[in-house]
C-alpha cells in the first residue's frame, strides 16, 4: 500500500467532524467529559488512541508536532506517534517545545511555559476522576450533574488519616472554574499548577473510554485540598544530575546493583537545552574540547 492511500491525518472526514464537534462542546463546558464515538486506531488501547484521534482532528498541514511520553521525546510511544503523523499528515515534527504548535503528551506538561497558539493534547487512560470511588457510569454522571463531589474529599481525607498527608502523587483531582471535578490524566501533581491559567489550549482524549474534555486558555483550575492540608506540588528533593536544574521534575534512574542511582529531568528537551547552554549537573560528562 502506498502512502497516498491515507486521508490527511489518517482519519476520514466524517470521523474528524464528529471529534471536532465533541472538542468544541468540551471547550464550551470546561472539565466536562463529552462522549464521542472513538475509532479503532492502528495501535493498542493504552498507547494513546484518544490523544491520537484528538491530534488527528486538530492538525493542519502547517503545524509542527511534538510528542512526549513521560517528558521524553525518544521513547517508543513518542517516536511511533511522531512517525505516524509525519507519514499520514506530512507535518513537520520537532522535539523543541518552543517550536511546536501541537504537542501530544503522555503524562507530563513540558517544563518550558506554553504560549498562545499552542495546543497540548493529553492521552488519558481513565477520564472519570470518580471511577475508582463509584464504578457505575450512571451514578458518576449524576454526581457530576449534581456537583456531588463529597466522596472525592473523603478519599483525600482517608489519605491523610492513613499516611498523614495526601499521598495521591499523580492524576491528582482538580476542580475546573469552580464546577467540574476533572482527572488531569496521570501527570505528576508537580504539573498541576501549570493546568491553571495556561495560555495554550489543553485537550484531553480517552480512546478506550470514549471521552473528550478540554480546558480553554486562562481557565482557573484548582487542585482539591484542605485548609490544614494544602496542596503541595512535590518533586524529588534533588537536582538534575545532568543539567543541575533544581526546579524541574525528576526521574530516578537506577545505575547499578549496589544502590547507585541518579536523578535526571523527565523533560528531555528541557534538559538538553540547559546542557547546551553550559549547565552541568553532578554526573554530567566532562565537556569535550
Amino acid at each position: 500500500m502506498s502512502d497516498q492511500a491515507f486521508n490527511f491525518a489518517y482519519l476520514d472526514e466524517a470521523t474528524k467532524r464528529m471529534i471536532r464537534r465533541a472538542l468544541l462542546k468540551g471547550i464550551a463546558v470546561p472539565g466536562y467529559q463529552v462522549p464521542f464515538a472513538s475509532r479503532e486506531m492502528p495501535m493498542p488501547y493504552g498507547w494513546g488512541t484518544g490523544g491520537v484521534q484528538v491530534t488527528a482532528a486538530c492538525l493542519t498541514p502547517e503545524d509542527t508536532l511534538k510528542v512526549i511520553d513521560q517528558g521524553a521525546d525518544d521513547t517508543t510511544n513518542a517516536v511511533s506517534i511522531r512517525a505516524f503523523f509525519a507519514r499520514t499528515a506530512g507535518v513537520e515534527t520537532t522535539t523543541r517545545t518552543g517550536e511546536a504548535s501541537v504537542i501530544q503528551t503522555r503524562h507530563r506538561i513540558p517544563e518550558e511555559p506554553l504560549v498562545e497558539g499552542q495546543i497540548l493534547v493529553y492521552q488519558v487512560p481513565i477520564p472519570e476522576p470518580l471511577r475508582f470511588l463509584e464504578p457505575r457510569e450512571s451514578e458518576t454522571r449524576k454526581m457530576h450533574a449534581l456537583e456531588e463531589y463529597g466522596l472525592m474529599h473523603v478519599k483525600l481525607y482517608e489519605d491523610i488519616a492513613r499516611h498523614g498527608e495526601i499521598s495521591t502523587a499523580y492524576a491528582y483531582p482538580v476542580r475546573v472554574e469552580g464546577r467540574y471535578v476533572m482527572d488531569p490524566s496521570p501527570i505528576p501533581k508537580f504539573d498541576n499548577p501549570k493546568l491553571s491559567d495556561n495560555p495554550a489550549i489543553q485537550l484531553f482524549g480517552a480512546g478506550r473510554e470514549q471521552r473528550i474534555y478540554a480546558l480553554p486558555p486562562y481557565t482557573q483550575v484548582v487542585s482539591l485540598d484542605f485548609e490544614d492540608h494544602p496542596f503541595v506540588a512535590s518533586k524529588a528533593e534533588h537536582s538534575c544530575d545532568l543539567c543541575g536544574c533544581g526546579t524541574s521534575y525528576l526521574d530516578e534512574v537506577i545505575t547499578d546493583d549496589r544502590g547507585g542511582r541518579m536523578f535526571v529531568c523527565s523533560d528531555t528537551d528541557f534538559c538538553e537545552t540547559r546542557r547546551a547552554q553550559g549547565h552541568r549537573g553532578r554526573l554530567a560528562p566532562e565537556e569535550r574540547t
Binding site: F8, E13, R20, L23, I27, L59, T60, P61, E62
Partner: peptide
C-alpha cells in the same frame, strides 16, 4: 481540498470558541 481546508477552518473555530 476538503481535508486540509476543513482542518484549517476547524482550527479557526477552535481558537475563536476557546478565546
Amino acid at each position: 481540498h476538503a481535508p486540509e481546508q476543513a482542518a484549517r477552518a476547524f482550527r479557526a473555530c477552535l481558537e475563536t470558541l476557546a478565546r
